[in-house]
Amino acid sequence: MTLCTAWVRQINNTDELVFATDSTLTGGEKWDHGIKLFELPRKDCLLCFAGQTGRAYPLILNLVSSLQFNKLLENPETSISEILNHVSELFTSLIKTVVSEIRDENIHELRGSARFLFGGWCWQSNSFRIWKLYYSEAAEGFLFDELTSDSSKTRFYTFMGEAKNIDIEKDAKDRFRLMLLEEDSLDSKLDMEPLRVLRDIAVDSSIREVGGSLQIAKVYKSGKSEFFGIYWPSIKGNPCFQGREHNEYNKPSVRYFSPDTFDITDLELPERLAEITEVTFKHDTEFMRECYPEGEIRGELSDGDKQKVKTILKEIAYARYLQELNTDGEVDE
């Protein structure tokens, strides 16, 4: 059981594909530290699942192994659609070997107890593409439907999940639409709205099957993917990565989101700077004034500009700290 989402984020005049899921595994028990979002040997695509863990994990592990040792499929010049066909054929061949040992058990329900979202960057169509993979009783195998085939749509998002006593996909979509309506952004480009919906459901204790820290990854137009950590359940919590909780000393070297704002914590900046003078900022004065017109941070700063601002502020703070140490030393003498 789970809830996962995928969407094309449109920000700072560029697009990126985002996948995210919760970390809860259930099935006679509840465990909030399960990996549900998978990095593949091909770095231009991602895979996540909803449904029975015991069905999904063997299929995914077989897929990772098959891609790792197939030079053709591992080659980034091979179309992502060929990877998709491989996934479908592999899952179908494996699922047909499942044998029920329980009398009168429906073999098709057994085979189809997990669904998948697969997607990535397609260099041939110069676009992000996402598919839903599912078991078909009629075909006795895994089929796929493309969710990004409608070129008339100006934005894309999807939710996929399962939970008892609630239609979790409908609930997520209803929350999403209500959020856009309340924020008067029905026609706006998507930023982190689907992730905010996933967060709200994950911290909702009434929904047992969705919980734990969020797992987040992106695919860029460069054909590269990046996995992120998150502080959970708030910025005051511990850093988590792929469902596992860490501390500040042993956390993996990835970038981390704040679940409160969904900004990268390493790139959080002050909203205001009282004075931007050449005495303080020297040769960076003009750049800082561009980033903080009239002392207020500019609405859309690129990650590169944010990193530069943070570096400048750190250097100034460190220089002042050294100056204070020197001053204290002179006083002590």
Results as ranks from 00 to 15, higher is better:
Leu181Gln: 14
Glu182Met: 10
Ser185Val: 06
Ser185Thr: 09
Leu186Met: 14
Asp187Gln: 13
Lys189Tyr: 12
Met192Gln: 07
Met192Ser: 08
Leu195Val: 03
Val197Pro: 00
Asp200Arg: 07
Ala202Tyr: 00
Ala202Asp: 00
Val203Ser: 07
Ser206Met: 09
Ser206Ala: 08
Ser206Leu: 08
Val210Pro: 00
Gly212Asn: 03
Ser213Phe: 02
Ile216Arg: 00
Ala217Asp: 02
Ser222Trp: 11
Ser222Leu: 12
Ser222Val: 11
Ser222Met: 10
Lys224Met: 14
Ser225Leu: 04
Ser225Pro: 07
Phe227Thr: 07
Phe228Pro: 00
Ile230Trp: 02
Ser234Asn: 13
Ile235Gly: 04
Pro239Ser: 10
Cys240Met: 09
Phe241Met: 10
Phe241Cys: 02
Gly243Phe: 00
Gly243Ser: 10
Glu245Met: 14
Asn247Glu: 09
Glu248Ala: 12
Glu248Ile: 11
Tyr249Met: 10
Pro252Ile: 07
Ser253Pro: 10
Phe257Thr: 03
Ser258Arg: 06
Ser258Lys: 12
Pro259His: 06
Pro259Cys: 07
Asp260Phe: 02
Asp260Val: 04
Asp260Thr: 02
Phe262Gly: 05
Thr265Glu: 13
Asp266Ser: 15
Leu267Phe: 14
Leu267Ser: 07
Leu269Asp: 06
Pro270Asn: 14
Arg272Gln: 12
Arg272His: 11
Glu275Pro: 04
